[in-house]
Design a binder for these strands. Sequence first.
DNA 1: CTGTTAGCGCTTTCAA
DNA 2: TTGAAAGCGCTAACAG
Lengths: 353, 353
Amino acid sequence: MEPNPISETIIKEGGSSRSSAKDVARLAGVSTATVSRVLNTPYQVEEKTQKLVRDAVKKLHYVPHGAARALRSARSQMIGAVIPSFDYALYARMTSAMQTALDAKGYSVVLAEHHYNLKSELRTTEQLIRHGVDAFIFVGLTHDAELFSMLQNYGRPYILTWGIDSTGHHPSIGFDSRSATFDLTRHLIDLGHKRFGLLSAMVNGNDRATDRGTGIRTALAQAGLKLSDDCVQYGSIDLASAKAMMHKILMLAPSHRPTAVMCTNDVFAVGAMTACREAGIKIPDDMSITGCDDTDLGATQTPPLTSIHTPITEVGLAAAEQIIARLEGQPYKQSQSFPYKVVLRASVCKPAY
Amino acid sequence: MEPNPISETIIKEGGSSRSSAKDVARLAGVSTATVSRVLNTPYQVEEKTQKLVRDAVKKLHYVPHGAARALRSARSQMIGAVIPSFDYALYARMTSAMQTALDAKGYSVVLAEHHYNLKSELRTTEQLIRHGVDAFIFVGLTHDAELFSMLQNYGRPYILTWGIDSTGHHPSIGFDSRSATFDLTRHLIDLGHKRFGLLSAMVNGNDRATDRGTGIRTALAQAGLKLSDDCVQYGSIDLASAKAMMHKILMLAPSHRPTAVMCTNDVFAVGAMTACREAGIKIPDDMSITGCDDTDLGATQTPPLTSIHTPITEVGLAAAEQIIARLEGQPYKQSQSFPYKVVLRASVCKPAY
DNA sequence: CTGTTAGCGCTTTCAA
DNA sequence: TTGAAAGCGCTAACAG
């Protein structure tokens, strides 16, 4: 008996192994090229043939092989998001916004954290390039120099977020952190505060924290004030570390102790509030406290935290749109700035004299 | 003049386009097969040759082409994490834990959200399969039936998290939500509460919310109590929605109004606290409130929120380890359960009579 | 509008 | 221990 080609087809249909374009082509009675066309450039194929192919695709549960497509077309449809940390609500929210926008256009998000370490960011990005990621979104303007040469070398478009690159070297989407904290500091100065404290994220390679600090110092300097060294604490972004930092400030002699403590993020501010509560220090009467990023964590405190609303969803969406525009050769803006908003709440008031 | 093959090599070295195994082979004076061996099975290559190749790799900044490798070896080293939402702190934290563990083993995490929609989860997973993702981590036990057949069809290993599959059909890593809320409810009953309220996430396809509700109802039933319909509210997981839900409950006649409101997550609980504050209802004296997941958001409230500490970092790490074990054919446990912990804080007390 | 053919960059036999 | 050569599944160029 001759082997029957039809029975082979039938076996394939029921089989549980992955079906290929070849299988679809055979079932539909066309060539693999036509299968590819139906999926990628359907307008080049006759309606009737399309239906034939689509039916076969459905029947076989055919899903094109991404790696093969990526290899052939040099495009993987994957965007890398390289983020400092997932545990900070705003980074998570930005990623979420990006993912939604990219998913809608058929791109997938490949995710990596670098835990505020620029060398780790470099290594991780290299990994992603190796995995075939087409383009990148980074947080912040400061990065390892090698990062940019690597991206250039592999022809990978990228966008920096959370800041605006005034040198114009890199495409960027963000907001003016410096001016935001400047404004907020002015407000505290206007209330009559003279002695300030600062809880800051480690500034090493973290331009968001650096800029936020700079905005504060600039405003103080203009008012003839300054931050004394023992009123400035640096730490990692978690509540325990924030409490410890604030505790140190509360140990200062009352005549030295700040009447307002500003924080480069809401987590620090909430940790500071907790430390004050535990020490019996009243907020805002004995101590004014401000945060940054306007998270739910801060907004729901008692009293609610004064903060700066950063336009992070907008940044995430814009970054997604722009990276697609670059990838698809459409026009795009070199840099975009979104407005922040100072949100005054009951965690600040005039200093007690 | 003859074209000079050496100058061609020199040009390649300085060029900015991506270098391939061929380029490395040429520079090292070996074949591409040897380049591949040095990178993947170095013990098969003589030390001296290895050095030659590695030097060339460094000089050319060679990074293997992931798609080509994936195509040839049918493994992309990418793990898909399909998560309900990034905006919920605990999912972000789990993803973070997974990413750290997977990154250490050379795997990348590809991320997707489905916004609590199982059909969207199915579509998104198909996308990821198409992109060549090797294996998957999902949240929850309830999924579209087609999801499992698709995974089977494409031979993709997966793990369900945040729950324990008692049927043994699917590998799972999680904790016993039902028993956790049962315990907490018992505590409130012991305090003397008789009228309960519940703020729950939409239970449609969300087994975490379903189980949490079941635990509560079971404990109440055992004590001869029940949830009256107008004391149960369903909504999406954000503060505004939570406040609105709690507001409805506060509108009930005082004789009908619950003395304790339990929530299937901390966001709801904090929204409920806010609503109470705005309505002048004292917590815990006039109203006891409980959450679930023990987030910073709840723990830093005034008064601090009673909640359930869910072992989510452990789940994330274990899921990462297990998925690698499956992928690499090592032994693994079919299902793992981690202990939760009820965390009693000042947001609950005896009911006022 | 559709089929044929070549080849993306790598890994993996098979031979030497 | 190494090289030559085949081919993973797909898309793009070229014919027809």
